[in-house]
C-alpha cells in the first residue's frame, strides 16, 4: 500500500517538530527516516501511525485520506523503540493480543489464533519461546516478538521506531539483515526510523534524511551518499573535512586544487571526505602542506590527523595496505590534495 504525506505540520509548544513535510512512500518499499535526535523523524512516524495528530496537513493511505482515522482502524503495525511488550502476558498472548481484541464477529476461533501465532513465531524463528514472559527474553528476542505481534493483525503498513536502537552492535547487525530478508519475502510497505546512517544505507530501499523538522533529501542510499543535496546530508552521512575558500571567477580552491563553485556569493565551503584526500611526501605548489600529529588504526583503515597552517586539522583515511607501504609516522611533513570534493556557498 502506498502512503502519501501531504504538508504535515506539527508543533509542541514553541518547538516546531515538523515543518511542511511532503513525502510519497511506494507500495512494498522499505523506507528509512534518517536524522539526528530531535529532527522530527519519530513524530512523523507516529503521525503516519495515528499515534499523534498533525496540526495541519493530511496522510493518505492508498489514495484515501486517513488523517482522521483512529489508530485502531488504520491497520498499521507499529514496533516501538522499547518494544512495549505486555509484561504480564506470555509471548504467545502478546502475539495473539491483536486477534483477541477484535469484535466477536470478526474474531478468529481459538484454534485459528493458535495456528496464526505459531506461524508468526516460526517466521521470527522463536516458536520455542511461546510460553515465556517478556522479562525472560533477550533484547533481540523481544525485538522479534514485537515484530511478530505487529504482523499478527496483517497490517497494511509496518512502522518501526528505532528498531535496533536498544540492541548491542553485534545483535543489531544480525537483526537488520534479517529484517531486510523478511521484507524481501513479505513485501509489506515499511517505514523505519533511525539515527544511524550505516543502518539506513544498508537496509533501506530509499532514505529520507531529515533535519530540524524538514526533509533534506530523499533518494536511494547511493544517491544520498554520492550526491548529497545539502551540506547537512553530506556531514550526516559520514566524516568530512571542511575547507573555507574565496571564490575566484567561479572556482574555489583547496591547497591549489580548484573546484567549480556555486554561483551565489564570493565565499565557499569545500567538503572533502577523509578517503578522498591524497597524501604525499613531495612538496608541490598544488598541495596543502601539513604535519602528521596522530595516527589511529581502525581495523581495515587508518586515520591520519594532519595539522595544516590555516584551519582545523585535516583527517586523511588510508587503507591498511597504503598505510603500510607509505610508512607514515607522526611528525612527518606531508602534502595533501583532495581528489574529489563538493562545494557549497559559504
Amino acid at each position: 500500500m502506498s502512503i502519501e504525506v501531504r504538508q504535515i505540520n506539527k508543533r509542541f509548544g514553541d518547538f516546531v517538530a515538523l515543518d511542511d513535510i511532503n513525502l510519497d512512500i511506494q507500495t512494498g518499499e522499505l523506507l528509512a527516516l534518517l536524522g539526528p535526535s530531535g529532527c522530527g523523524k519519530t513524530t512523523l512516524l507516529r503521525i503516519i501511525a495515528g499515534l499523534e495528530t498533525p496540526d495541519r496537513g493530511s496522510i493518505l493511505f492508498h489514495g484515501e485520506d486517513a488523517t482522521d482515522t483512529h489508530v485502531r482502524e488504520r491497520q498499521v503495525g507499529f514496533v516501538f523503540q522499547h518494544y512495549a511488550l505486555f509484561r504480564h502476558m506470555t509471548v504467545f498472548e502478546n502475539v495473539a493480543f491483536g486477534l483477541r481484541v477484535r469484535p466477536k464477529h470478526t474474531r478468529p476461533t481459538d484454534a485459528a489464533i493458535k495456528q496464526k501465532v505459531h506461524t508468526l513465531l516460526e517466521l521470527v524463528q522463536l516458536d520455542w519461546l511461546a510460553d515465556r514472559y517478556p522479562a525472560q527474553l533477550s533484547g533481540g528476542q523481544r525485538q522479534r516478538i514485537a515484530l511478530a505481534r505487529a504482523l499478527a493483525v496483517e497490517p497494511r503498513v509496518l512502522l518501526l521506531d528505532e528498531p535496533f536502537g536498544a540492541l548491542d552492535t553485534k545483535v543489531r547487525k544480525e537483526l537488520r539483515r534479517w529484517l531486510r530478508r523478511l521484507h524481501d519475502e513479505m513485501h509489506i510497505t515499511s517505514v523505519f526510523v533511525t539515527h544511524d546512517q550505516e543502518e539506513a544505507l544498508e537496509v533501506a530501499d530509499r532514505v529520507v534524511v531529515m533535519n530540524k523538522g524538514r526533509i533534506e533529501q530523499t533518494g536511494t542510499p547511493e544517491q544520498v551518499y554520492d550526491q548529497p543535496a545539502t551540506p547537512f546530508v553530506y556531514q550526516f552521512l559520514g566524516d568530512v573535512n571542511l575547507f573555507h575558500s574565496r571564490v575566484h571567477e567561479g572556482w574555489a580552491e583547496v591547497g591549489g586544487t580548484r573546484f567549480a563553485a556555486p554561483e551565489a556569493g564570493d565565499k565557499a565551503v569545500i567538503y572533502v571526505r577523509p578517503h578522498e584526500i591524497d597524501i604525499q611526501r613531495i612538496a608541490t605548489d598544488k598541495a596543502l602542506a601539513g604535519v602528521i600529529t596522530h595516527v589511529r588504526l581502525l581495523g581495515a583503515t587508518v586515520r591520519l590527523e594532519v595539522n595544516v597552517a590555516a584551519g582545523d586539522p585535516v583527517e586523511v583515511e588510508l587503507t591498511r595496505e597504503r598505510y603500510t607501504e607509505g610508512r607514515w609516522s607522526v611528525g612527518e611533513a606531508v602534502w595533501l590534495s583532495p581528489r574529489e570534493a563538493r562545494v557549497y556557498a559559504g
Binding site: 501511525a49 495515528g50 499515534l51 489508530v71 485502531r72 482502524e73 498499521v76 503495525g77 507499529f78 516501538f80 522499547h82 512495549a84 511488550l85 505486555f86 509484561r87 493480543f97 491483536g98 481484541v101 477484535r102 505481534r149 505487529a150 499478527a152 493483525v153
Partner: peptide
C-alpha cells in the same frame, strides 16, 4: 503509556 499505545495500534478499544 507505550503498552497502551501498542494495544491501541493492535486494534483494542479503550476499555479493552
Amino acid at each position: 503509556s507505550e503498552e497502551e499505545q501498542a494495544a491501541l495500534v493492535l486494534g483494542a478499544s479503550g476499555w479493552q
